[in-house]
């Protein structure tokens, strides 16, 4: 495998993990605009464990993912009192506060960044992304996925049917944070260097784009979205400076033509629904 191809595939793997971190809360109807914060927790804690306490990577990464999840749980409880756009903004603020906190933590390098000694080779990254994907596919066959859809579609009805709406919401938010923390911890160990500035708003927002572009209705949507967003700019590389402009134009036109995203459960049902909506 050429170095270029490996590089692109590694980026793809991280993007897939990030996309699924956004997908889980979104499947429960939450727009999480702060996953960069959870990635930062995973990245910094993972690096701290291997650097300062000389933990092995295989132990440090899951533990950091777990801690990111714990933070998600603790913060999710108050934050999930808000709904819709308020929740989106709360997660957005949360992501900003977390990465700004790391920017000021001198014990992990502060603004200068934090080198990571232990190294995770590309094969590990690929395996991790595949693992996250398989986990999500598995999850989509369980009742939990049904609960998520129920809570997203109509929380009141889900509540009446005996689903613990708040429990499901917190679980989805926390699991998303775990996946983000997992990706972040791996990111630090693969690239051998982390800096707080990397975990910015755009890092939170782009995975949301992958998911909405790919479509939120099926478990395949985030994968397809991440694939497209990683590979399309590479294909457009020939047109150097115009590539992001062309790419943005394509996204705008695509979303105007197909707002549900690329992959949907049933084309026919959707066509019918769109017709029904047309007169509004």
């Amino acid at each position: 495998m050429s170095g270029y191809l490996t590089g692109v595939l590694v980026t793809l793997s991280f993007n897939v993990i990030a996309a699924y971190a956004v997908y889980l809360p979104m499947a429960a109807g939450q727009l999480n605009l702060g996953i960069a914060g959870f990635m930062a927790i995973g990245a910094y804690l993972g690096a701290f464990l291997t650097n300062e306490l000389s933990w092995p990577i295989w132990a440090a990464v899951p533990v950091s993912a777990g801690l990111a999840g714990t933070v998600g749980l603790l913060i999710g409880l108050p934050v999930l009192r808000t709904h819709g756009i308020y929740l989106a903004m709360a997660t957005f603020a949360l992501g900003q506060v977390i990465s700004a906190t790391f920017l000021n933590l001198e014990v992990v390098g502060g603004a200068a960044g934090y080198p990571v000694a232990a190294y995770a080779p590309p094969a590990v990254v690929f395996a991790a992304a595949a693992g996250v994907f398989l986990f999500m596919v598995l999850l989509s066959t369980t009742r939990f996925a049904l609960y998520l859809t129920a809570v997203k579609s109509d929380a009141t009805v889900a509540d009446l049917l005996g689903i613990s709406v708040r429990g499901i919401q917190v679980a989805a938010f926390t699991l998303g944070a775990v996946v983000a923390g997992f990706g972040g911890a791996l990111y630090g160990h693969h690239y051998s260097f982390i800096e707080a500035q990397h975990f910015n708003v755009m890092l939170s927002v782009f995975p949301v784009l992958y998911v909405l572009f790919g479509g939120t209705q099926t478990v395949l949507g985030p994968l397809v979205g991440a694939l497209f967003f990683t590979l399309a700019p590479e294909w457009l590389r020939a047109s150097a400076e115009w590539r992001y402009a062309l790419f943005a134009m394509f996204i705008i036109l695509f979303m105007a033509a197909r707002p549900q995203g690329l992959v949907t459960t049933s084309m026919f049902r959707l066509l019918g629904r769109r017709k029904a909506q047309a007169p509004a």
């Binding site: 949301v208 992001y244 943005a248 996204i251 707002p259 909506q277 509004a280």
Partner: peptide, 26 residues
């Protein structure tokens, strides 16, 4: 960005409006 998504998920127009941000910047 807005008109095609009216009545759909509220987060969807966010994608295309963000597309405009990226487009204008580039």
């Amino acid at each position: 960005a807005y008109r095609p998504m009216r009545g759909g998920d509220p987060e969807v127009p966010l994608v295309s409006s963000l597309g405009f941000l990226v487009l204008l910047e580039n």
